[in-house]
Design a protein around this nucleic acid. Structure first.
Length: 854
RNA sequence: GCGGAUGUGGCGGAAUUGGUAGACGCACUGGUUUUAGGUACCAGCGCCGCAAGGCGUGGGGGUUCGAGUCCCUCCAUCCGCACCA
């Protein structure tokens, strides 16, 4: 009597069995012996309180890898924790009058129970939350070590101020001029902030990208662009004015940076940023310049502003001397398109060969002088109109550079400037130092005390961790720590006088920049050198720049302060970025978004259940609360079981691409689960003990299926592995002949051990059903008999003039002449050769035969 | 503007050393069983054509005995960065 598999009763039972067996506990290096280590890590979640399908997909992928490695004899570290500091907890505190800590730990408890229902092979013994004082205390120690090493510093700087969240944002957190969380237009403010000196590693962070061969090309490119290295010349233009007209600090001249020193003879003016120190000085004496600066500040950094920003400027009245042309002077302008944050905040403009400079020159009638001659142009004829020439060519109208290529001219110019002593070859990066001060409560306190006498004093190690106070109020905007009545009041550790704690906390990206190292050295074991780097890291591509770059910086910084034995400084040897889980959207006539749980579908027609009215089916989009197109993992688990939910997220699309959640697709996965069960349910109860030999077609198929799944998992082609599982189950179900039963039993033994990566509970039930010993979750990967993978005979397609016409069965090692003869003798092929002369027969052994005839 | 990817049936996708295009799943069609329905099982399913056959991997061109795969070119979509000198 066939039975049905009931995941709701089976899944908790097998999870309990795994827990009893303590299967997923990480072994120490000593216990592991010669077994290779495998640190498999998925980006740890923010404890929002609810798991979403994106989590399920992410952790299902990591679980496949972890289980695969474990089955292949690796010592696996597969931990989980919580990225627990951040704004949502404070928002909850403001809205619901709950303490951020209580809110966070409640969420963690709720999410952990959801996690447990998924049946992931995680070692929870290393769990921590970044808001645990033990964790952030260690982070404070790290901060002080980096401070000591000069990798942390304080400076007054213009910052991105989020007027809604009342906090500072890193450049990376400003998207289109708006705060990445609040969406509010960001303002510029001048504050004293703590910075991590990520630029100290700019060059290494860039060049080391080449070595990250198990990272997606896309991520490496994005990081490369973000770091943005450029090579050029930094040089000084001296003023030709009498000294009195120039502010004293700038008497030496104006420093500029350029990547096109070859165009120096085409220079027509200098342009200063509105925020350049010289501009500020001049603004104090010149009302027009002051007004111009004010106008630029108002434009801000909003999307539209930059989009339309016309190039505007103002003449300072100053002029500088051209370094190579005696008596030639260049006017100095202030221009809105020059950024203070890049290079020196001042440029020389060569309008003929730079579009921005050209736009500006045309507007203000400044000279345009060409110095690079395109190939095929004659010196007399060549001129630029409204489009600058930026292509290749040779130098002309440039004295000693005439006739040189651009590259040669760059070098020659730099050498000459260096010889003249007014500049040098220089490398510039787009990357800025990382501002980490945040005016928030729910973050890691910066372990610093400000003393009127002693200045900035680190909190002594014995006083760490600097704990967050519990008694805080959120009724005022801004930082609750600075509103606290006495938390900040301390005695200076140096002189003992009354002093004040730093009330800023660290950017939460700091918390996630080294958590992997904490996992590696949990339980007071210093196993960092053993476990690091992470062998396989898996997470969303949205972290391609920030989190991954900061982590790479931190690993280097920690290495350099002796916190981590990781010579390369690379924390993640392998990185995989998975796609999102998407769903159709539904909208009612009156514009409401309608949840998938509130609809019925008949073919293409979708109806809202409550109103009975038709809905418009919108585009497939990332699951989000705002579009109401989310599917709740809990509901799925209660309906189909965790295995089916996990399986579906891996089955339909390649893992790096988005997967569309569909009801019918999930039902297909659920049907598959039942088919698997019915296969095993029809097997003898001792099928797991059957041993076979021989070379039947079914045995060959079984062993090839194992090999195919092995390879697909290895290559992150989970959807292909799933396809093989489907096919394999169908093949085994059809193998009903009496003489196939032993081989079928072997296939089932192997299938259970492959399936356990994807549907661990079901695989366990199947394994048990056929009398498998122990737990299949603890079983080793099936051995493959290599002799079964290769065929003695092969089926070769026969092509005539490149089109497949027939096929032939022939011994694998048949000589080419035999194959050729067999192909020419083939009746089907012959019918296509009538009236033609065979010119040539191409035999690719084991692949194909192609008869060329005319 | 710069950089990166992607483009294959009605849909998601497979084909990963240049060698049988469309595996597997979804949807759909027909059938069997049971039934109130779902379930389960069998068969079919790129396009044109009665067939023989022809045509087919975004468009066009090329290399090759042979191209989804390599080269050139154009188009479309998505993602990232964006006044970086």
């Amino acid at each position: 009597m066939p039975t049905r598999y009931d995941p709701l009763t089976a899944e908790p039972k097998w999870r309990a069995a795994w827990a009893d067996a303590d299967l997923y506990r990480t072994k120490s290096p000593e216990e592991a012996g010669d077994a290779p280590k495998a640190f498999i890590l998925e980006m740890f979640p923010y404890p929002s309180g609810r798991l979403h399908m994106g989590h399920v997909r992410n952790y299902a992928m990591g679980d496949v890898i972890a289980r695969h490695r474990r089955a292949k004899g690796h010592n696996v570290l597969h931990p989980m924790g919580w990225d627990a500091f951040g704004m949502p907890a404070e928002n909850a505190a403001m809205e619901n009058k709950v303490h951020p800590g209580a809110w966070t730990y409640d969420n963690i408890a709720a999410m952990k129970s959801q996690f447990e229902r998924l049946g992931l092979s995680l070692d929870w013994s290393r769990e921590f939350a970044t808001c645990d004082a033990e964790y952030y205390g260690e982070q404070q120690k790290l901060f002080l070590k980096l401070l000591d090493k000069g990798l942390v510093y304080r400076k007054a700087s213009k910052v991105n101020w989020d007027p809604v969240d009342h906090t500072v944002l890193a450049n990376e957190q400003v998207i289109d001029g708006r705060g990445w969380r609040s969406g509010a237009l960001v303002e510029q403010r001048e504050l004293t902030q703590w910075f991590f000196k990520i630029t100290a590693y700019a060059d290494d962070l860039l060049t080391a990208l080449d070595g990250l061969d198990r990272w997606p090309e896309k991520v490496r490119t994005m990081q490369g662009n973000w770091i943005g290295r450029s090579e050029g010349l930094q040089m000084r233009f001296s003023f030709d004015q009498p000294p009195t007209s120039v502010p004293p600090e700038f008497e030496a001249g104006i420093e500029i940076y350029t990547t096109r020193p070859d165009t120096l003879f085409g220079a027509s003016f200098l342009a200063l940023s509105p925020d350049h120190p010289l501009t500020k000085q001049l603004a104090q004496q010149n009302a027009d310049i002051a007004a111009f600066r004010a106008a630029c500040a108002k434009v801000g950094t909003s999307e539209e502003a930059i989009e339309k920003a016309e190039k505007v400027g103002i003449d300072t009245g100053l002029s500088v001397s051209h370094p190579f042309i005696d008596g030639k002077t260049l006017p100095v302008w202030v221009a809105n398109f020059v950024l203070m944050g890049y290079g020196t905040g001042a440029v020389f403009a060569c309008p003929a060969h730079d579009q921005r400079d050209l736009d500006f020159a045309r507007k203000y009638n400044l000279p345009v002088r060409t110095v690079v001659l395109p190939p095929d142009e004659k010196p007399g004829d060549f001129a630029v109109g409204d489009t600058a020439y930026v292509g290749p060519g040779t130098l002309f109208q440039s004295e000693f550079l005439d006739g040189m290529t651009i590259e040669a001219a760059k070098s020659a110019t730099i050498e000459k400037i260096e010889a003249m002593g007014c500049g040098q070859r220089s490398v510039n990066y787009r990357l800025r130092d990382w501002g980490v001060s945040r005016q928030r409560y729910w973050g890691c306190p910066i372990p610093i005390i400000h003393c009127d006498q002693c200045g900035v004093v680190p909190v002594p190690e014995r006083d760490l961790p600097v704990r967050l106070p519990d008694d805080v109020s959120f009724d005022k905007p801004g930082n609750p720590l600075s509103h606290h009545p006495d938390w900040a009041d301390v005695d200076c550790p140096n002189c003992g006088k009354a002093a004040r704690r730093e009330t800023d906390t660290l950017d939460t990206f700091v918390d996630s920049s080294w958590y992997f190292a904490r996992f590696a050295s949990a339980n007071d074991l210093d196993e960092r050198a053993y476990w690091l780097p992470v062998d396989q890291y898996i997470g969303g591509v949205e972290h391609a720049i920030l989190h991954l770059l900061y982590s790479r910086f931190f690993s280097r910084a920690m290495r350099d302060v002796g916190e981590m034995d990781l010579p390369s400084g690379e924390p993640f040897a392998g990185l995989f970025t998975q796609g999102m889980v998407t769903h159709e959207t539904y909208r009612s006539d009156d514009g409401r978004w309608v949840s998938p749980s509130e609809i019925t579908r008949d073919g293409d027609a979708v109806t809202e259940i409550s109103t009975g009215k038709p809905l418009t089916v919108g585009p497939v989009e990332k699951m989000s609360k705002s579009k109401r197109n989310t599917i709740d993992p809990d509901t799925m688990i209660e309906t189909f079981g965790a295995d089916v939910a996990r399986f579906f997220t891996l089955s339909d699309s390649p893992p790096e691409r988005d997967v569309e959640w569909t009801q019918s697709g999930v039902e297909g996965a659920a049907r598959f689960a039942q088919r698997v069960w019915s296969l095993f349910d029809a097997m003898p109860e001792d099928a797991a003990t059957v041993q076979v030999s021989g070379k039947s077609d079914l045995r060959k198929y079984n062993h090839r299926a194992v090999a195919a799944i092995d390879k697909a998992v290895e290559d992150f082609r989970f959807n292909s592995a799933v396809a093989t599982l489907y096919e394999w189950v169908s093949t085994l179900k059809k193998s009903e002949q009496p003489d196939q039963q032993a081989d079928r039993a072997e296939g089932c033994q192997q299938l259970a051990r492959c399936l356990v990566l994807f549907m661990p509970h079901l695989a366990e039930a199947c394994w048990h059903r056929i009398g498998g010993s122990g737990l299949v979750a603890a079983a080793t990967w099936p051995d493959i008999d290599a002799s079964l993978i290769v065929d003695e005979t092969v089926t070769l397609p026969i092509q005539v003039n490149g089109k497949r016409r027939s096929q032939l069965e022939i011994a694998k090692d048949a000589p080419q002449t035999d194959i050729e003869a067999a192909a020419l003798a083939d009746a089907d092929a012959a019918s296509f050769l009538q009236g033609k002369t065979v010119k040539k027969v191409i035999v690719v052994p084991g692949r194909i035969v192609n008869i060329v005839a005319t």
